[in-house]
Computed example of a mutant assay.
Amino acid sequence: MEFDFLNPVNGDLLDEIKTLNPHTLGAQIKLHTERSGVPELDDVQVAIFSVCENRRAPESVEVPDFKELRKKFYRLYPGNWSLRIADLGNIEEGASVEDTYFAVQYLVENLVKNDIIPVILGGGQDLIYAQYRAYDKLDQMVNLVNIDSKFDLGDAELPISNSSYVGKIVVDKPYNLFNYSTLGYQTYFNSQEEIELMERLFFEAYRLGEVTSDISMMEPVFRNANLVGLDLGAIDSASLNSGYFNSPNGFNGREICALSRYAGISDKVSSFGVYEYQANLGPLANTLVAQIIWYFIEGVNYRTNENTISAKREFIKYQVPIDDEILVFFKSPVSGRWWIEIPFLDHVDTKLKRHTLLPCTEEDYLEACNQVIPERWYKAKRKNEV
């Protein structure tokens, strides 16, 4: 793979790495340096790169510099991991924002094709559009999960920005999006029109309080995701200790790291982006972002690969009659995780061309036994019919 548009890791960081304990991440990961170039990726499972682009984030003042964040990340110790990690360096601003999008799209597409999970460190969150477009040639419908206090739907007729990229994702061809889920939205940051539009499109939206009351209930949402984006503005300002992010409400450090780990442990998530990174965030914010990345990689290391056909053959099947429906649940004897089947409808032109297993919780199964249809199953089935 040729990536001439990538700039190497800052030379000062190489001097920093020489002073680190040999067991730290910085001393172990493969680096893109000016001297050695882009590293060989044959044995790499996770590739980190940063994107110095925020021209579509009008409130950002300076182009982000990820050197201090990398310092914090390199100083961390890996867990008991069997993964090989690479840092591919930076994508600098292109001559136009579209040039930057193209570079991100090309890099993510090629990494995913080679079973390497890209971790994108970005400026403006509009870069999710480029992350999503990387799936155009992968011949699949995709599910996008966004950890954000806002829906970022915007007006698809207007130019894209860091707060209005989802509308473009929905209406621009090719149509790859099957489901969009927002975790941690705060009602006062979103218009009622947007909330109602999310409902009409059968997208999933989880309020901040709903998520934080039981973080574990979000695991099935990530298990069905292909790409995940995280807006740092979804974190409360006290956890970041930054003057730029000034919302008193949001996820705390422990909660955002738990969500990041769920994203990593999902067998289907093939790219992960952390966005709205700002210049001069400060040591506490950089430490937290470094730990968010660490927890995502920790999750990747503990994947159970239950997406395979052979693994699904071992699932335990449960059938629950409700009214005119028979809901079919499956449970993994290995992980104890649950799925519910979305039936294929042969009389309509469905987006899903086969029986699809939708991740769910044991509580969904128990509620179905009490004649309550799971809301996620209903929304997925309705999207399948549209």
Score class of each variant (00 low, 15 high):
residue 271 S to R: 05
residue 266 S to Y: 05
residue 263 A to P: 11
residue 305 N to W: 13
residue 297 I to P: 01
residue 286 N to E: 15
residue 305 N to E: 13
residue 269 V to C: 11
residue 265 I to S: 08
residue 271 S to G: 14
residue 305 N to K: 08
residue 287 T to V: 07
residue 258 A to M: 09
residue 265 I to R: 10
residue 264 G to E: 04
residue 283 P to W: 03
residue 300 V to E: 01
residue 294 W to G: 01
residue 259 L to A: 07
residue 284 L to M: 15
residue 295 Y to A: 05
residue 271 S to M: 10
residue 274 V to K: 02
residue 264 G to R: 00
residue 286 N to T: 08
residue 290 A to Y: 03
residue 273 G to T: 05
residue 258 A to G: 00
residue 280 N to T: 11
residue 283 P to C: 08
residue 265 I to Y: 06
residue 269 V to S: 05
residue 299 G to P: 07
residue 270 S to V: 09
residue 279 A to H: 15
residue 267 D to F: 00
residue 301 N to H: 00
residue 286 N to P: 12
residue 300 V to A: 00
residue 284 L to Y: 09
residue 273 G to I: 07
residue 270 S to L: 02
residue 296 F to W: 12
residue 285 A to S: 15
residue 302 Y to I: 05
residue 267 D to V: 03
residue 293 I to P: 00
residue 300 V to S: 00
residue 274 V to S: 03
residue 303 R to Y: 08
residue 281 L to K: 05
residue 272 F to A: 08
residue 292 I to E: 07
residue 295 Y to L: 13
residue 293 I to Y: 06
residue 287 T to Y: 08
residue 264 G to H: 06
residue 298 E to Q: 13
residue 297 I to W: 03
residue 298 E to M: 07
residue 272 F to Q: 05
residue 270 S to D: 06
residue 303 R to L: 09
residue 275 Y to R: 01
residue 284 L to W: 06
residue 288 L to P: 09
residue 288 L to D: 04
residue 262 Y to G: 02
residue 260 S to W: 04
residue 279 A to V: 12
residue 284 L to R: 15
residue 289 V to R: 12
residue 279 A to N: 12
residue 294 W to Y: 11
residue 273 G to A: 13
residue 279 A to W: 09
residue 257 C to H: 06
residue 289 V to H: 13
residue 271 S to D: 12
residue 273 G to Y: 03
residue 266 S to I: 03
residue 274 V to H: 02
residue 277 Y to K: 04
residue 265 I to N: 07
residue 298 E to T: 13
residue 288 L to Q: 02
residue 299 G to V: 03
residue 278 Q to I: 15
residue 264 G to N: 10
residue 280 N to F: 15
residue 305 N to H: 14
residue 278 Q to P: 10
residue 301 N to M: 03
residue 301 N to Q: 00
residue 298 E to S: 13
residue 289 V to F: 14
residue 268 K to S: 00
residue 260 S to Q: 14
residue 303 R to P: 05
residue 274 V to G: 06
residue 263 A to D: 12
residue 293 I to W: 04
residue 282 G to P: 04
residue 304 T to R: 11
residue 278 Q to T: 11
residue 305 N to V: 04
residue 289 V to C: 15
residue 304 T to Q: 15
residue 290 A to N: 09
residue 257 C to N: 05
residue 281 L to H: 10
residue 291 Q to C: 01
residue 303 R to S: 01
residue 298 E to D: 13
residue 304 T to S: 14
residue 261 R to A: 09
residue 285 A to V: 11
residue 303 R to F: 07
residue 277 Y to N: 06
